[in-house]
Design a protein around this nucleic acid. Structure first.
Lengths: 248, 248
DNA sequence: CGCGAACTTGACTGTAGTCAACCTGCGTGG
DNA sequence: CCACGCAGGTTGACTACAGTCAAGTTCGCG
């Protein structure tokens, strides 16, 4: 599938430099990585078992879910990757399958081989550290998901999920915003460990605070939403300084 | 509290070399790290917010839980650290608090400053990689916990938890074993996101397969337990080869 | 021997799941 | 350009799994 737009790894470098100091040379080394652009249409599984391929990939546009499918067919998302996020970077140091990958909407991905990733990392210690740190930010999100699905009720849980997605989409703490969330209610259910019916009902109860409609989220009352969600976004940043910046 | 036994970082090096190739020199560099041994008695919080101190630590004996406490007082464990496991290694690259730490039983810990950890890592790229890989194994466990508390019912969930703990305790796939699990039913509940009452009832229903009693787990039917749990231990290893080894 | 923490049990409640029907809006093809 | 089909969203009635509360009981330790 030939796409009209040609992407580069700029968004990925931007994500890395948001939490890690990289010299111009190091940034250039990453930007120079060979990659292969391709488009995955919505609802298409990118791979049944993530990590089975020899490449990681950066999301250039769209949204990708990592999921585990149980024997009864139920799906549980274990991660969502937005534009600029890298998928399967962990496979660089730990070549073990970690579930399936699915495009939540038409998505453009930039494949980079693990061999090449290992090579840049080997040449630049700061890049290794940036990669490691990037993985740890993902792990911090995972930790919150454990707390979320383990101990919060449906309303709180969905509110928390929306807060997380808002911040990751670049929401800066103003009372109102709108951001894209190309997920069906069923997919939201897979993310927060509820059924689509219950997501539907809970979403109604949150309409005063945030309206989820036609793949978009309109936040009407950020303060209220974070209170319902008991949300503290500190876990989404890579260091305490950034956390302080965010609170301000 | 002066302890009669003096520990070293051998168990930690053993954990690292189980998944990462380290030269004798690299192993020695880790073993030579300065550390401070101390004992934390059971139910004592090691820190309210993990990572707030300037050191990571290796568990020399005992069991440590990482937890998040919600405003209503409910606790959710996000990790359990056994002998040889290192706690707060992630803080080396990501100095952000990730919840509290609590000694599940009388526990001996060996504190190592993050400064020293960063120093060995900087001198030895293979050590950096081993640290990174170690973090990713922890992250893989976390991913399973999301699936576990999100999509499995109480019986299955507890069975899965017991399988994970058995493998981590060194269980090798024989039908029967016994291993230590110094957790009260309430703490098991905190780990698997249930109430202690429900853990108690579910445990009864698993007695034919595994008996949890006086801080020990006796496995009577490993095959049966893994079937109930839909357990596949591949996520606990650091590479596919090790996974294959485990299946055999 | 006695105390307290942990475990056990029963009765009841409530949140979320299930099932099934219906609606709505969008994209495709006639 | 309309008609159809279908995926996704909405609603209601009912179910069930796990939570809650409260009262015992057992066990380990001082």
């Amino acid at each position: 599938v030939a796409s009209s737009v040609h992407y580069d790894l700029g968004r990925f470098v931007a994500r890395l430099t948001a939490h890690s100091a990289l010299s111009a040379e190091e940034q250039q080394a990453i930007l120079s990585l060979p990659f292969h652009q391709s488009v995955v249409s919505r609802k298409r599984d990118i791979s049944q078992s993530a990590g089975s391929t020899s490449s990681a990939f950066v999301v250039a546009s769209g949204l990708v879910s990592r999921f585990v499918q149980l024997s009864d067919g139920e799906r549980q998302f274990t991660a969502l990757y937005r534009t600029g996020d890298i998928v399967d970077l962990d496979y660089t140091v730990r070549p073990v399958s970690t579930g399936g990958l699915n495009a939540c909407c038409d998505t453009t991905i930039l494949r980079v081989s693990h061999r090449e990733l290992r090579a840049v990392a080997a040449r630049h210690p700061a890049v290794t550290e940036a990669f490691w740190r990037d993985c740890m930010v993902d792990a911090a999100v995972l930790m919150q998901w454990v707390v979320n699905s383990g101990r919060r009720d449906a309303r709180t849980r969905i509110a928390h999920f929306l807060c997380e997605m808002a911040i990751r989409a670049g929401h800066n703490g103003s009372m109102q915003t709108e951001f894209d969330l190309p997920l069906s209610q069923e997919q939201i259910a897979d993310a927060v460990a509820l059924t689509s019916v219950h997501v539907n009902r809970s979403l109604k109860g949150l309409q005063q605070l945030a309206l989820v409609q036609s793949k978009k989220v309109q936040i009407h009352n950020w303060r209220g939403l974070t209170e319902v969600a008991q949300f503290d976004g500190a876990y989404l940043v890579a260091d305490a300084q950034a956390a302080r910046r965010m609170i301000a």
